[in-house]
Nucleic acid binder design. Sequence first.
DNA 1: GAATTCACTTTGATTAATCAAAGTATGAGG
DNA 2: CCTCATACTTTGATTAATCAAAGTGAATTC
Lengths: 219, 219
Amino acid sequence: MPSPTVENYLKQILMISLESHKREVPMGLISDSLKVTPGTATSMVKNLEKEGWLSYKSRKGVKLTASGRKLGMNILRRHRLLETFLVETLGLDWSEIHDEAEELEHSISEKVLERLDDFLGRPRHDPHGHPIPTKGGIIQIHKNRSLLDCKEGMTVTIESIDDQEKNFLKFARAKHLVPGSKIKILSREEVANAMELKVGKRNPFSIGFQAAAKILVSA
Amino acid sequence: MPSPTVENYLKQILMISLESHKREVPMGLISDSLKVTPGTATSMVKNLEKEGWLSYKSRKGVKLTASGRKLGMNILRRHRLLETFLVETLGLDWSEIHDEAEELEHSISEKVLERLDDFLGRPRHDPHGHPIPTKGGIIQIHKNRSLLDCKEGMTVTIESIDDQEKNFLKFARAKHLVPGSKIKILSREEVANAMELKVGKRNPFSIGFQAAAKILVSA
DNA sequence: GAATTCACTTTGATTAATCAAAGTATGAGG
DNA sequence: CCTCATACTTTGATTAATCAAAGTGAATTC
């Protein structure tokens, strides 16, 4: 049975690979996202290769094998179903569920997970708007645009918020930047690195480009 | 933050102490219940002492300190609330919840636990009939008699089943030996090491003394 | 094309938890 | 009181995961 650490590495590698739309994931992104030193990532990745979860080319990066991808998907499913449970059933706030789910995902059994899935009515998306992989490991991929890619005058719908940072999630919620919201881009100020938005009929406000990149939308 | 291992040692020591009605717990029971070698228990217990969770006297045993008892109670609370959730909400079987809860109890946060408690309606007993410690670490102690202590002709009510072994729990459930059931002791056969029981209006059946000792009752 | 920088790898050490096996104290029986 | 078994303790080794710091290869810059 793989350790929580193994599960975390595989989940994280999978997520980077999904986000970047590339099969090969460089070591730097792995050590950054797992908050370990580069040396730790290197030695861990070598073990993961020995155990058949991925293949590793020195100074190139890693590629998940079929079993590595499968396990990664499974952990992602756990994570997103748990987040859904925490919000839908227990009423926790959107901004505080990530760390909770991060812990629980490693100890919930397959059996309990499937019961939970039934109990929740087999949701397809988690509270952030991210798709939940199926039991079979299939994930629906939206090639999402971020708010940053949108031009002045466009009106778009939020698909998901692509960040786990608490303060950012609180900010997003406060401004009604939640999946499903319709937003109009009033203006883009390339020099100021900010854009002015209007959510529904609320007062307009501004958001920096860095933050805008975290908000994924569909036209 | 204490590791899962530390939490398990403290929970187990607390449970032994509650069951035996003694403050001092011998090393042998600790290593047995945690399924580690005696040497492992000795070295672990020394660390626990260094960290202030308990006091240890060589070849005598251990006593929990106030903080050790508090943490132990907290883990016991987690365990029993989780078992309740697994049965009540997700509909798992009585006989399969122990190991699940054993895993989850170390990763659920205080916050989620209290939400769960609310969601479940602040239950006082878990599905086995064991009392759930309060948030403040108070546990209601029944000085339970076991079925083994009962005489021929008595009618008693089941309080709890004092075993986690799957097959035994399945057997108990099949025979309606569940908390709340009323049982009449039809006969005791000291020589055969068995007693004949009648649960409600069902057909009588026999149960060995060893099994009878695991069924705690009140008159 | 040499120097520098960045990204990564290697090395050596540490920590928590464990086991096997050898050693020792204590209490019970002769 | 001596012996012995039982119950524990000690010792030495192992494993997974980590870090700090030193080393190296590849790309960028001059």
